Simulated scan of single mutants.
Amino acid sequence: MSQKNLIVYSKNGKRLGGGAAQLKRIKDNGGWDEHHRQVIADAVEVAYQTFEENENRVKLRLVK
């Protein structure tokens, strides 16, 4: 992940980027295991929303 993609702020307000930002985000999420659970839950939520949007589309066919 590049420094431009993730920016977080430390306790004293210092801007962090790159690896330091990743480590801070992981720490804020409760460690590696909880961080991975959160990432997976977010991915599943996005996939489910996309699936529901596709299923709820009205399927019309042109009949002559």
Rank of each mutant, 00 (worst) to 15 (best):
V8N: 05
E45P: 04
I7D: 07
E45Y: 09
D28I: 14
G13V: 06
R25Q: 11
H36I: 15
G18M: 07
Q3D: 08
G18N: 09
G31R: 00
N54D: 09
G18V: 04
G31A: 01
H36S: 12
R37K: 12
F51P: 02
I40Q: 14
G31T: 00
K14E: 02
A21G: 05
Q22P: 02
I40Y: 14
Q49Y: 03
K24R: 08
V63Y: 07
Q49G: 05
N12D: 13
N54I: 11
D42A: 11
L23Y: 14
N29D: 12
L16S: 01
F51Y: 11
S2V: 08
E45D: 12
E34R: 15
Q22R: 12
K64A: 02
K4G: 05
Q49E: 00
A20V: 03
V46N: 04
Y48N: 15
K27S: 12
H35V: 00
R61Q: 08
A21L: 02
V8L: 15
A47R: 06
A21F: 09
K24G: 01
N12M: 04
H36M: 14
G19N: 11
Y48V: 15
G30P: 01
R37T: 01
S10Q: 07
K11T: 10
E53M: 03
D28M: 15
G13C: 01
A43M: 08
G30N: 04
W32H: 14
A21H: 06
E45K: 13
I26P: 01
L23E: 15
Q49M: 02
D33H: 04
E45C: 11
Y48A: 15
M1L: 14
D42G: 06
N56K: 01
V63P: 00
Q49P: 00
H35A: 08
V44G: 04
Q3F: 04
V39E: 06
